[in-house]
Design a protein around this nucleic acid. Structure first.
Lengths: 148, 148
DNA sequence: GTAGACTTGTTAGCAACGCTAACTAACTCG
DNA sequence: CGAGTTAGTTAGCGTTGCTAACAAGTCTAC
């Protein structure tokens, strides 16, 4: 296939997967709100849980969000007792975030809800179709990494 | 593979693709904001352009959104001259939506910004890898449809 | 050491999304 | 005809994201 065809094919695939990603997450968002947890909060909490104590600014950067947005997300998480603010003794400006035990539990449950919902229609596929998805996931991971 | 194995595999695939979708859209989010066009509007406009004249309710269903949300999205598109409302002569309740020439042009330009970014790493794949993505997209479309 | 510049995070205010509840208008059917 | 259903709109709420402006802490250069 010539360069022209490659570009056309790539573009069509990009459009297709772009739409799929949008609708996939849209379909899962309902699970979040049901438990009072939203996508962005769950995602931020996940970084705090697995990324250890982290500053608010670093967390905002990790989530690709501006600091004011993260301030509000963290406020919600703190109000729910999922995260604790700790002040750096060496630098009074810095806020360090640490997940509470409750935060870790809520993250686990929230993730489960989302994943279970997506796993249901996947389980309805044939084994061959699941194999197709498995192969494609490795390829897609490289594509997503290339977005950086 | 037994029922146990199917469940385990499905769950692993769900986790993988969940993460992929999140990071894919996060990577594309920056391409969004431009000249009054947002992701949801672009997505709805796309359905109107390619899905021909369509009722508001069907468009809402296609976008997995409630009618009031679509009413507002369509109002924005109409205000921008991208879409026209047409009243069904046989059924006075129905609103049919048709894209204007400007709407078609804006869709191409606007979506280009997002899609181009995703198409770039896809074009760097081998033809075989792109074929894997193409096959998987059909399967994933059914999974996403099953989230309803 | 102190004045100015930079960094970190917050507050305030805006627009966009998505939802439910409640409503109007139009159609259908007994 | 009248009750019930369907399509779409309006009103109002909560969440997310942004920029601008600000407060507080730290660093640097003189």
């Amino acid at each position: 296939m010539g360069a022209r065809g490659t570009a056309r094919t790539s573009r069509a695939l990009a459009e297709t997967w772009h739409g799929l990603a949008i609708h996939l997450l849209r379909g899962l968002r309902r699970e979040d709100t049901r438990a009072g947890m939203t996508g962005p909060r769950l995602s931020a909490l996940s970084v705090v849980v697995f990324g250890g104590p982290i500053t608010l600014g670093d967390l905002a950067a990790a989530e690709q969000v501006r600091p004011p947005t993260m301030t509000r997300l963290v406020a919600a998480l703190e109000a729910g007792g999922l995260v604790r603010r700790e002040h750096d003794p060496d630098d009074g400006r810095v806020v360090r975030l640490r997940a509470t035990a409750k935060g870790q539990a809520v993250l686990r449950q929230g993730r489960d809800r989302r994943v279970r919902r997506l796993a249901t229609p996947i389980a309805a596929l044939s084994a061959a179709e699941r194999a197709v998805l498995r192969d494609a996931s490795a390829v897609m991971a490289r594509v997503v990494a290339g977005l950086r």
